[in-house]
Nucleic acid binder design. Structure first.
Lengths: 197, 197
DNA sequence: CCCTCACTAAAACGATCGCTCTATTCAGAG
DNA sequence: CTCTGAATAGAGCGATCGTTTTAGTGAGGG
C-alpha cells in the first residue's frame, strides 16, 4: 500500500502527479518527457510506469485533473471574495495576473497548452480539458445565479468571462505584462454591470 | 525542377512556409518535426536547411509571420463587412466559427500553440507571436477609432475583443462546438454597444 | 567548352523520445 | 524462517528528433 499515516511526507504517486502538472503547465504535453517528469518528481522511470501503466497519457490525465481541481478552488475563492458580481469577475482577473507575474510569466492556464497539442489525436486529454473549462464556467455561472441573474444571461456571461480570461492569460504571458488581464477584467466587469441596470 | 517559367506554381521556399504554417497551427511547435514539414511541402530536408539555415526555429518564425499576415487580412475584411462596430466584432466571431467548423475544429489560432510552448525559452518565436497579437489588436482599435470611439476606450475594447476571441477559439476547439465563439461574439457586441450610449 | 553556384537529394550523426524488461529491495502474511 | 507482491532502480529497446555532411543536379556566364 502506497503509504499509511505515519511519517510519509508525500507518496511517490502524488509527487509524480504534482511534478507532471507543473511541467505540463509550462511546456505542454509534447514538450514534457516522461523521464523529465520522473526526475522532477524524484522518482524513477519504473515507479512512474508502476503507478501509471497507461504511460505518458495516463500521467497527463491525472496531472491535468489535479491542476483543474486546484485552480477551481482558487477561482471559487476569488469569486467569493466579493459580493458584487462585477467586482468578483475583476478580482479573478487580478488573481490570475498576480500569480502569472510572480511565476515569471511561465505558469499559465494548466489546460490550454495540453489541449491545443492533442486536438488532432483522439486522446482522453482533450476530454479532461473540456471538463475543466466547463467546470470553471459553472463556477462563474453559479456566482451570477446567486446574484440574481437570469439563467440564460448567467450562462452566456460565464462562457464569455472564462474565454476572455483564458485569452487574456495567454496574451499576458506572451507580452510578459499583466495589462491584458487587468484590462479584460475591467471590461468584463463593465459587461456584467450592463445587465444589472 | 522546382519549376520553369511558364507554369511555376509556387517556389520551394513558399511551399515550405505554407506547409509549416499549417502544421504549426494544428500541432504546435514541439509537435511538428522538420522532416514532416519537408514531406508535407514536397521538399527535401536539404532544401529546408538551404532556405532556412537557422533550422526549425527560423522556419517557424517565417511560418508564423505568414499566418499572421493571412489572418490579419481576414480579420480586416470581417471588420469592414459591417459599419456598426458591434456588428463588426460579432462578424469576426462568426468568421472564426465558420472556419473552425469547416476545418473539423483543427485549424485554430496560428500563434497560440506555438507561443505557449516556447514561453520558457528565449526564442524569437514569442516575439513574433507578440507582434501578431498586437497587430490584430491594432486592427480592431482602428475600426473603433474610425467609428468615433475615444482612444482609451478603443484601446481597452480592442484588447478585450482579441483576448476573448482567442480564448473562445480555444474553447470552441476543445468542445468541438462553435457555441463559445458565437456567445462571445454576442457578448462582445453588447460590450461595444455599452459605450455608444 | 568549362566553371560556378543555387538548389536538390539522401545518408548518417548523436541525442532523446516513450516504453519494456529484468533485478533488487523490503515489509508483512503464512 | 519462507514466500509474496508492491515498489524502486536502471539498463536497454527501436524509433524519431534536429542537424550536419557529402554528393549530385542543372541552368547561366566566361
Amino acid at each position: 500500500m502506497s503509504g499509511y499515516g505515519g511519517g510519509m511526507q508525500t507518496s511517490t504517486r502524488d509527487r509524480i502527479v504534482v511534478a507532471a502538472a507543473r511541467l505540463l503547465q509550462r511546456q505542454g504535453y509534447v514538450g514534457t518527457g516522461i523521464k523529465q517528469i520522473a526526475q522532477e518528481a524524484q522518482a524513477t522511470l519504473g515507479s512512474v510506469y508502476h503507478f501509471f501503466p497507461g504511460g505518458k497519457e495516463a500521467v497527463a490525465v491525472a496531472a491535468i485533473r489535479h491542476s483543474t481541481e486546484e485552480f477551481s478552488a482558487l477561482l471559487g475563492k476569488a469569486l467569493d471574495s466579493e459580493d458584487d458580481p462585477a467586482e468578483a469577475v475583476s478580482a479573478c482577473a487580478r488573481q490570475l495576473a498576480d500569480e502569472l507575474r510572480e511565476s515569471g510569466w511561465t505558469d499559465g492556464c494548466p489546460v490550454t497548452a495540453a489541449a491545443l497539442e492533442t486536438l488532432g489525436s483522439d486522446s482522453e486529454i482533450q476530454q479532461v480539458c473540456a471538463d475543466a473549462l466547463r467546470g470553471w464556467e459553472r463556477l462563474v455561472a453559479d456566482k451570477l445565479l446567486r446574484c440574481g441573474f437570469p439563467a440564460e444571461s448567467a450562462r452566456e456571461l460565464a462562457t464569455t468571462v472564462v474565454c476572455a480570461l483564458e485569452g487574456a492569460e495567454v496574451t499576458a504571458q506572451v507580452n510578459r505584462s499583466e495589462e491584458p488581464l487587468l484590462v479584460a477584467g475591467r471590461q468584463l466587469a463593465r459587461l456584467v454591470r450592463s445587465y444589472e441596470i
